[in-house]
Amino acid sequence: MEDRNIREACGDSSHSTDVTVRHPLGLHLRKSKDVVQTASRFQAQITAQNLTRTSPVVNAKSILQLMQIQARQGHVIRLSAQGPDADDALAAISLLFDQRYYDLPAAQ
């Protein structure tokens, strides 16, 4: 309740989107690094939750917290953002999980 009041007072909007981990190694260290680095470029508060494991909701700007949700291949991650650039933040992070651009196994 209190949260909502603050949010409304600040004129911020809260959004979320679900992404699926496609990489055989799951949300591995290097990918987590990319998420943290991308998330850190935005002002919005950004969280991640592993829905498949019903993990705690963690701060997507913290590598330690991100690694603790132990996302494996096929797991669904809920990304939530709150703040003036929430939409852009979610779009940028979601892109990291789009296998057209990322997560392709290295060519042999």
Partner: peptide
Amino acid sequence: AGLGHSLEEVNQAAEATAQFEKIPRSLN
């Protein structure tokens, strides 16, 4: 460090890894 955090922040994050569970017992 690459994110431009302060020395104290960098160290806190590094030291927090001591508690990091490689095989988390808290998750299914």
